[in-house]
Nucleic acid binder design. Structure first.
Lengths: 188, 188
DNA sequence: GGTTCCATGTAACGTGTTACATGATTTT
DNA sequence: AAAATCATGTAACACGTTACATGGAACC
């Protein structure tokens, strides 16, 4: 239900599935990623529904391209989505299950060790985000001053804030666990 | 790849699919939820792989129950998962796409309004978590002092910290946007 | 002639949801 | 007799990933 609208949104200008895949890999990858197979399938579905129309065009290099463009119906449906209710996907962080069962079946030291590893992964991901942010800051000083500069970083900011909160959570949990293991529980 | 291990983990004591569904709804719902159909299917798959064995047993009320128990192989595989590498599922918050395109196609005021609505949803979810935390604190003062008391709240704490971070992000983004709309951008 | 890039797809699988079917037993 | 609860499932769909197939055109 989301890729549909991402594709519609990317189709302000007519484009082929190949173009869209490339565009998404380039500038939307940390927002929404998709494989070619899924993109092509979704485009066909959108055309069948009447939100897109396509035509075959000769390519300068390579085989013919199927170029999609939004129909008026497509414009309308995209607008409706834009202004519609924001939907929050349910969160499930799978690693919590592992922590839960490990804490039940093993001693606090092992759970703390697992939490350290989880923490490391969060930190690593945070560093990746910081690296992306650094490169985006570099290329974005002559291009588009307001929009891209503000919103390119918005998604990254959210990711980073989320990660920082989770890293802090790991730290606190580890503190509580090593406290339990070393000194017979502080209170509880 | 996760429900498998949640079920294995819940099967310290033999239980039927129905029992497991009930147990998960009761105490693991904010960790990992699953529908009956999926649980029954996964149980059959696990039996086929040799990690579980089942037998039909008469029920006091209702039809016969298929009761599953872990095999030695099941024990081994569950242990391996417990001690294995923690996996972080890739995050994609679908609402970011909506924000992205709205910001591109509409004025900052509308984007700020969307962010307010997103914020409201985060706040509502946070309140739900707080309510759960309150009820869990009440029922958990005679039962199991260390384990459940500490780990029942761990997952909730993470959820709440994550939500708080996201609420702050909304606030900051709204501030930036209304700044842009009102006073011609502070810098950039 | 081989590699790389362009371009579009198919098939199979994995995970999860929704809706429904079936039938027993217990409660009202 | 009807409704609720116990208990197990099937079928269809939705979304997404992985792996592979096909073939042209360009570059070395």
């Amino acid at each position: 239900m989301v890729l549909r609208y991402v594709l519609l949104g990317c189709l302000e200008q007519p484009a082929s599935g190949y173009d869209l895949k490339a565009a998404m890999d380039r500038s939307l990858s940390h927002l929404w990623a998709a494989e070619s197979s899924q993109i092509y399938g979704t485009l066909r579905a959108l055309e069948k529904e009447g939100l897109l129309a396509s035509s075959l065009e000769k390519s300068e290099k390579g085989p013919d391209r199927r170029v999609y463009r939004r129909t008026t119906q497509g414009d309308a449906e995209f607008s409706a989505w834009l202004e519609g209710d924001p939907e929050l996907s349910p969160e499930r962080l799978s690693v919590l299950s592992q922590i839960h069962f490990l804490a039940r079946e093993r001693d606090p030291t092992q759970t703390a060790a697992l939490l350290e590893r989880v923490r490391d992964k969060f930190v690593e991901r945070l560093r990746q985000y910081q690296a992306i942010q650094a490169t985006e800051a570099n290329r974005g000083h002559g291009a588009s001053p307001d929009h891209d500069a503000v919103f390119g970083t918005l998604a990254l900011d959210l990711g980073m804030k989320t990660l920082q909160a989770r890293i802090e959570w790991c730290d606190e949990a580890i503190r509580r666990l090593t406290g339990l293991g070393g000194a017979e529980a502080t209170r509880a």
